[in-house]
Design a protein around this nucleic acid. Structure first.
Lengths: 229, 229
DNA sequence: GACTCTTTTATGTATATACATAATAATTGG
DNA sequence: CCAATTATTATGTATATACATAAAAGAGTC
């Protein structure tokens, strides 16, 4: 066969990185590139589309394709499934249920999930451990409407995280990391000092029909969030 | 025209989210789907490939396509170009050069970039401001071999971040966020209290031929890192 | 000039066809 | 039965062709 789209992709990337195609500059159109390189336009299209998705190029109909000025490249991060994160470190995963109760959600939580004030939800607190050392403390609210089974599932045997992945419908959500001082409760469960800087991940998950869960995950001190470009 | 690949994409996603196609289950092959839905196989391929990239499906030649067991979905994050981050908040961006000097890199820095011990580099410290309030403090080492122009560029007029984006070759890099206590120097420049929890981003950038820069960016307290799924 | 309308053009997509490739399944030889 | 070989098959890719669509450029009007 002729050239593969990966070949075109690599060649174009080389030209971008070597600044043969300068930032902001218009590059030849697909037809021309196809003729020059000796392949079909569809092949060029596939390669340039990939480069655009990766943030190297900006493409607009009629206006053509230009090298991105400030490469707004996207870093990708696997959404933390804590078991995998811990096992990737070569450590043994375990978890401990602290408590679970169905009760009224605080107003800020029901607001954040778009549920009416005064909604009841299942409130679960648990601890994730790596080699029996505290790794993260989780405080989670689960919407009973979206996930009715939550009240009766054995959260001492399977972690809320994993149970939900397997049992809850799931479409989109938000993630937000911040650096905060460990609260009294967090410090107690994570075995650290009150006020020490810790990473907190707040996450809301929405199913196709209804909000599913809101979670606050506090990592033990020293946690890193690595991303790859 | 017939159905678009987005239509197929949406339909398949609906089936996954409604659990009509259960996690781990094999879905019909492309040819069959194309026949059922009334479009060409290439169109189905485009849709399923997109779903696989998004993490909903796992595809293997001959083995077929199945719904991902634990949707290892990837969150995407725009790599911070600080000006854009600040302007997106509706604030005015500015920056202030604190100092710049060409000197020996500390060993841990040259190691991290894979440069021999005792290499000289340009050391730049600067402050980024949003509406004239400290937003982030940057401590950066720039490899003179990869970016010779750095020593003479007017860093009081253009931020190191932007100058490098425009002038340095750039291919891949690492990003690592952590929560730490503000050091004395960081606290002084950010106008916060010593020891307060702050987000730190450490980043290394490598060009096609040589390492380009290592950076430590300390955000003012209260900074959030938002990701979208 | 400011406005609308039309034309042009580069990218975006859909299709049929052909072949490539990886991985499973079947077959064969010992 | 086991290992090596071959056949099968679903996805992956390349191609030509045709048409769709967004947006810029140009033409015409006031």
């Amino acid at each position: 066969m002729g050239l593969s789209w990966q070949d075109i992709h690599a060649d174009a990337l080389r030209r971008i990185q070597s600044r043969e195609w300068q930032p902001g500059a218009l590059i030849p159109n697909e037809e021309e590139l196809a003729k020059d390189l000796g392949c079909a336009r569809a092949t060029v299209n596939r390669a340039l589309r990939a480069l655009a998705e990766e943030g190297w190029l900006e493409r607009r109909r009629k206006a053509g394709t230009r090298v991105a000025l400030s490469p707004k490249r996207r870093a990708q991060m696997a959404i933390p499934v804590i078991r995998q994160e811990i096992e990737a470190l070569g450590k043994t995963f375990s978890h401990r249920l602290i408590d679970r109760v169905t009760t009224l959600m605080p107003a800020f939580q029901s607001d954040a999930l778009g549920l009416p004030a005064g909604t009841s939800a299942h409130h679960v607190r648990s601890l994730y451990l790596a080699d029996n050392l505290a790794f993260a403390y989780e405080d989670r609210w689960v919407n009973l409407i979206a996930v009715p089974g939550i009240e009766t599932c054995p959260l001492d045997q399977i972690s809320p995280n994993e149970w939900l992945v397997q049992n809850a419908p799931f479409s989109r959500g938000t993630l937000e990391y911040s650096a905060v001082a460990a609260t009294d409760e967090e410090a107690r469960h994570l075995g650290c000092t009150l006020g020490v800087p810790v990473m907190v991940l707040e996450r809301q998950t929405f199913g196709p029909d209804a909000p599913v869960t809101a979670m606050r995950l506090t990592f033990a001190p020293g946690h890193h969030l690595k991303l790859v470009i």
